[in-house]
Design a protein around this nucleic acid. Structure first.
Length: 446
RNA sequence: GGAGUGGUAGCUCAAUUGGUUAGAGCAUCUCACUGUCACUGAGAAGGUUGCGGGUUCGAGUCCCGUCCAUUCCGCCA
């Protein structure tokens, strides 16, 4: 018999069915045992009676939580159950008996002793079974799909920039070094250079989704050493503001789709409502933002950038004033930005770029790029960068390269804010952090 | 890299501030129970209090070292 998903059972009353899934709950009453079986679509109660056979009840009594079972039985109406029906077990096979007790508690409706995140991550494959995490993975899938779809429907081409590269792409940020046969290579901190190559290649509108690597020992709730960057680059722009509008529409369409598909479930499991901004996102210049912050007495980190506290407070102020959770911050001093950002021709101290904040956290940096090779060289020189290592990059601008700009979204941060998670680690399938890589193996080794 | 907080049973926590045999809930095991649904009831097992040293008649508690975790900062998406 073919397996049927649990959420389809309601159409199969009084029919014989086969379900496969996990043991979610066991309530042993002696001569009658109630099981709750869970699969990817839902839960159902299954009943084993002693009258159905000694062997059957013996098997059921030997079950442990989270074991995998293959059950054949009849769907029967049952007023005693909330769902209105249950499965009368005729036959059961244990496909995989779970060892017990489990090393962590799987998060559920009635558990108040949820295991600490660190240990849950050690046993991530058990942790991910929880309804919350199952939903998180579904939302994550839809989120990326919709961002991608938005690009594709706007005539974009998708590229896969190499992850192993010869030259570190960003100044300052630390890179992971890898052995490439008898040479040194690096894991890409960003697809930036090769994304820009697409501009010189005449691709005009490209996006790139994939892992990027940051060798920074950051111990915060918003940093990973490996994360997924959703990168966009667009040619023939007149202003970086076009990028802002594009990103705004991209995010709004994604949020709309997520809300439609999972809004209710998200409200139920994550206690958060997805708000889709009615009009445009808000804009503020660094100078204006600093003035607002000074007014309420938040100490400034300096004129070039914001401290996390400033980011949080600024978002709060804007949300209070306008109701908008999204804020573009513009007019950053060029010295604090990447060398490939274009300078404002009217005020060379200012970069033609922006950051996007969502509820107190930076989810994007973007900018119009400097496509004029001499100006680009000058910018790199100003920062004391090694120009010879950048020569390959400069080549892209030698044989005709259109004006262009782009941005990158940290998708884990996006998901984290969308579901109101406390840590980015929760929003990541299997997070790598400065001291998490390979940690579980070490533990087992002991 | 810097600062703070923490580490007690498989999990979540307690231990009256240094005092006798380190407790509870959940999970586990045994027994009972034919309508449970956070099943219930009776019982059992489960601990080198992260590790090493010190102070003290006495340390889970205080001190030093060390490891691990975590939060914030720096760095960034």
């Amino acid at each position: 018999m073919e397996r049927i998903l649990i959420d389809q059972l309601k159409n199969k009353i009084e029919q014989e069915v086969r379900i496969r899934g996990r043991v979610d709950t066991i309530r042993d009453q002696g001569k009658i045992v109630f099981l709750v079986i869970r699969d990817g679509s839902g839960k159902v109660q299954a009943v084993a009676w002693q009258g159905n056979g000694e062997e059957l009840i013996k098997t059921v009594k030997s079950l442990t939580l989270e074991s995998i079972v293959d059950i054949t039985g009849e769907v029967k109406e049952a007023n005693q159950v909330e769902q209105g029906f249950e499965i009368d077990i005729k036959d059961i096979r244990i496909d995989s008996l779970a060892q017990s007790p489990l090393p962590i508690v799987v998060e559920g409706e009635h558990n108040d002793n949820v295991t600490a995140l660190d240990q849950r991550l050690d046993y991530r494959w058990i942790d991910l079974r929880s309804p919350r995490n199952q939903l998180m993975m579904s939302v994550s899938t839809l989120m990326t799909d919709k961002l991608r779809e938005f690009c594709i429907s706007n005539n974009f081409k998708e590229i896969q920039a190499p992850r192993i590269i010869r030259t570190a792409s960003e100044s300052g940020a630390n890179v992971f070094e890898v052995k490439y046969f008898d040479k040194k290579a690096y894991l890409a901190q960003s697809p930036q250079f090769h994304k820009q190559m697409a501009m010189a290649a005449g691709l005009e509108r490209v996006f790139n989704v994939g892992p990027v690597f940051r060798a920074e020992k950051s111990f915060t709730t918003r940093h990973l050493t490996e994360y997924t960057s959703f990168d966009v680059e667009i040619a023939y722009i007149d202003s970086y503001k076009e990028l802002c509008v594009f990103e705004q529409e991209m995010i709004k369409s994604m949020l709309k789709a997520v809300k439609e598909e999972y809004g209710e479930r998200i409200k139920e499991l994550f206690k958060i409502e997805i708000n889709i901004p009615n009009g445009d996102f808000e804009y503020i210049t660094v100078e204006q933002a600093k003035a607002k912050l000074a007014k309420i007495g938040v100490s400034s980190k300096g004129d070039e950038d914001f401290s996390p506290e400033e980011e949080r407070k600024l978002s709060e102020i804007i949300k209070e004033e306008t109701g908008c959770e999204f804020l573009f911050v513009t007019d950053y001093p060029h010295v604090g930005r990447a060398f490939y950002h274009m300078k404002d021709p009217h005020n060379p101290k200012i970069a033609l770029g922006f950051d996007l904040f969502w509820n107190g956290i930076e989810i994007t940096t973007g900018a119009q790029r400097e496509h004029r090779i001499d100006a680009l060289r000058e910018n790199a020189k100003e920062r004391g960068m090694d120009l010879t290592s950048l020569e390959d990059y400069f080549e892209y601008f030698k044989y005709g390269c259109p004006p262009h700009g782009g941005f990158a979204i940290g998708t884990e941060r996006l998901l984290m804010k969308m579901l109101n998670l406390e840590s980015i680690l929760e929003a990541t399938y299997l997070p790598n952090t400065p001291n998490r890589l390979g940690k579980l193996i070490t533990k087992i080794g002991k």
